[in-house]
Nucleic acid binder design. Structure first.
Lengths: 135, 135
DNA sequence: CTTTTTATGCTATTGACCATAACACAAAAT
DNA sequence: ATTTTGTGTTATGGTCAATAGCATAAAAAG
């Protein structure tokens, strides 16, 4: 059984990415959110008052796709919109949102742990450095 | 502007995978197919007579999602189904399908070339070896 | 031999995520 | 004063993944 895609890095890239995302989504579990929501919460937690457009630029998500995500998180009482300069709106965690951040942090590292225990810490660090060089 | 996901390999994994897939899809261009179709064609070309279930196992695609893809490629005159043992069906390239395989091969390496020219050949080889160790 | 298990191909459906276009509006640049 | 740029938002379509369910056939187990 020949596998013509096995020697291609791109194939293993998407395959490994899917494995990691699967682990992360499973770790979010009963929180009822998925990896893009978790990423948005992490970014806002690290940058209180950040705009939706900036979040999209950091995470490579269109701002038109950020809007409904944020709305859902606002409805859950985890996020709050406060008007800023001009037409901009700053995003902040509510108290309820801050309370779940430990769980978000823990779940977001599920994929990392899976990878690390499988390839080792040194290979993890080397691959991370390599991929960060890519534009 | 803090980026809490930047030190996480998982984030760069999906980001790089998306870049590679985007390059591959662009390279397929006017062929009117996308990366899963190309992968299926490559696998059949390397394994004439392979079943759809086996293709799915190689590529991590559910066989229920392979069926409509194959049907489209059959409609285009690139693939042919020949009944095999029991309920199995072997997949083969038609002559027209064989004629486009050079273009498929060329396009499938577009993502690889993008990565290689960006991180270098040695980092490419090292990362490939690392990710192949992951189950 | 009969029954159960396993595997295959397929349809249908749902959902997640991505991408594009279009709009209203505000700030900044010209 | 006019143009350009940026922001938030809605709507919409498309790709791909996931699940359940069906009919059928081979293989395994009784």
């Amino acid at each position: 059984m020949r596998h013509p895609l096995d020697p291609m890095l791109g194939f293993h890239l998407v395959r490994t990415a899917n494995l990691a995302l699967r682990a992360v989504n499973a770790a979010y579990g009963d929180l009822g959110i998925r990896h893009p929501d978790g990423a948005v919460l992490l970014v806002i937690d690290a940058n209180p008052g950040i705009t939706q457009s900036s979040i999209g630029r950091l995470l490579n998500i269109q701002r038109s796709n950020i809007a409904p995500m944020v709305s859902r998180l606002v409805d859950r009482g985890w996020l709050e919109r406060r008007p800023g300069k001009g037409k901009t709106i700053g995003m902040f965690l509510t108290e309820s949102g801050q309370r779940i951040m430990p769980a978000i942090h823990a779940a977001s590292t599920a994929g990392e742990n899976m990878i690390t225990t499988s390839i080792g810490a040194d290979a993890y660090a080397a691959t991370l450095e390599t991929l960060k060089r890519l534009r």
